[in-house]
């Protein structure tokens, strides 16, 4: 059974259709495996080879990976949620009720989005501390650390802007408390607050602003920074494995490059 399944899979891989999609071809040779990475737009961000030691769970705890996974879940759930959501007062709240009571699996979608958002904040923090304690910020990875700090801020703002969107008491007052802190900035405080909220109080304008930030600006910024973050991992010599002599090596040459 297993055998015939594998044969079947092999036939599929050799079909013209498959090969037109995955041009690298497939096979157990390292050439094929390299091509599987190189000739894929997304996988291209990875290097062809990875240090075996960096794959051990205890090294990274996969926290960066998991942060990215939660981000992808958030995008995947966020887009269908946008279909049901109006950034207006008080319709936004009514939409929450519709999601809960009328939309098929609407509540699950919202749950998954909300819990993933919390998980992402937690994971990104954990990632940062893990990277710090392993000393993975050392040259040549200094700038990637800085990008990481930016990504932490983007994550926090994404979560914070999303917090307002249900337009319930929890949302309204959490944002009110947060935005009041802004006005403590010397000189420019009230201006910054006005700019953020589109008014002097949390109102319909603030909801619209937060919606655009949450659904367009911050995800785009995050996506771009994540792209650079990943690319820099590779350009800075792959995942930091903590072995001596690894630092200060800008790039380990790879075959087929």
């Amino acid at each position: 059974m297993a055998r015939s399944f594998q044969n079947y899979l092999g036939d599929l891989r050799e079909s013209r259709v498959w090969q037109s999609i995955f041009r690298s071809g497939s096979g157990p040779s390292n050439l094929h495996r390299s091509q599987a990475i190189q000739q894929n737009l997304y996988l291209h961000l990875f290097s062809v080879k990875s240090r075996r030691s960096s794959l051990a769970i205890g090294v990274t705890w996969y926290l960066g990976t998991l942060s990215m996974v939660t981000f992808l879940i958030l995008v995947a759930t966020g887009i269908p949620l946008m279909l049901y959501y109006h950034p207006s007062v008080p319709q936004a709240y009514a939409d929450m009720k519709d999601l809960q009571f009328a939309v098929s699996a609407g509540l699950f979608l919202r749950n998954l989005h909300r819990w993933s958002a919390h998980a992402m904040v937690l994971l990104v923090f954990a990632h940062m501390f893990r990277v710090f304690y392993r000393g993975a910020y050392r040259p040549p990875r200094e700038f990637n650390w800085v990008i990481g700090v930016m990504l932490l801020l983007v994550t926090l703002f994404l979560s914070y802007t999303g917090y307002l969107l249900p337009w319930d008491q929890l949302a309204f007052w959490a944002i009110t408390v947060g935005s009041n802190i802004m006005s403590a900035v010397p000189l420019l405080g009230p201006k910054i607050r006005f700019l953020t909220l589109g008014g002097n109080t949390v109102n319909a304008n603030a909801l619209l602003r937060f919606y655009v930030l949450h659904c367009v600006i911050l995800p785009l910024a995050g996506g771009m920074l994540v792209g650079i973050h990943f690319w820099r991992i590779r350009k800075d010599g792959g995942l930091y494995s903590g072995k001596s002599g690894d630092e200060s090596q800008p790039q380990v040459s790879q075959p087929h490059e």
Partner: peptide, 17 residues
Amino acid sequence: GQGAATTVEEAHSSTKA
């Protein structure tokens, strides 16, 4: 009561929401 709700508890009773 809560008109939008489609569960007895939420529609009839006093809840957080």
